[in-house]
Amino acid sequence: MTPLWALFKRDLTLAFHQRAELIQPLIFFMLVVSLFPLGVGPNPATLQMIGPGVIWVAAILSSLMGLERLFRDDFQDGSLEQLLLSGSALPLVALVKVTTHWLTSILPLLILSPLLALFLHLNEAMYWALLATLILGTPLLSLLGAIAVALTVGLNRGGVLLALLLVPIFIPLLIFATSAVDAAALSLPYNAQLAIIGAMLLFALALAPFATAYALRVSQN
């Protein structure tokens, strides 16, 4: 357990050293969302209609921005080689990395979300539904993102490629998440949508660390 705990602590320390880099996607997220009321006008009905989708799309885009941090530095400075030769189980290493990434890059988005819900005139029921989909859905972004980052880490300038690889994969998540919030707006139950997102999350949790580990090993070739 100690090696993984040490890795967790190291990544948190690093995140603290890279505060500025972490805040950028957060500000991007806020700016994108706040552009919509200006762009489409302040009509509450329109904003309420597009609100959940806007927040989710902005969350996906801003999570893509910081995603490369996951393995890029470790690959470039050779820490990844040492990690591969440390004898720790690589899937667990990947899982720890994803966890710290979620805690440092995505959790702040969730903390900001009440403010943005206010921008977009979401009512309380809609906000709780949105928060539930974000809590269940954003770890999925990190888990799947880790596979793509591990695959592209050996390429220089993998940034755009990363977006091209990942955005199509996130479409189902986006559909179920926004439909849950729409259901909440009509005071309908949205357990089914949450259950599907939860199932996707569990599936990714079980398999993504192995895929990431494999991709990281291949990246050394």
Binding site: D73, D77, G78, S79, E81, Q82
Partner: peptide, 11 residues
């Protein structure tokens, strides 16, 4: 011990 030092520059 490879070409890359395996040290994080910020730590």
């Amino acid at each position: 011990f490879g070409h890359k030092a395996g040290l994080n520059l910020r730590l």
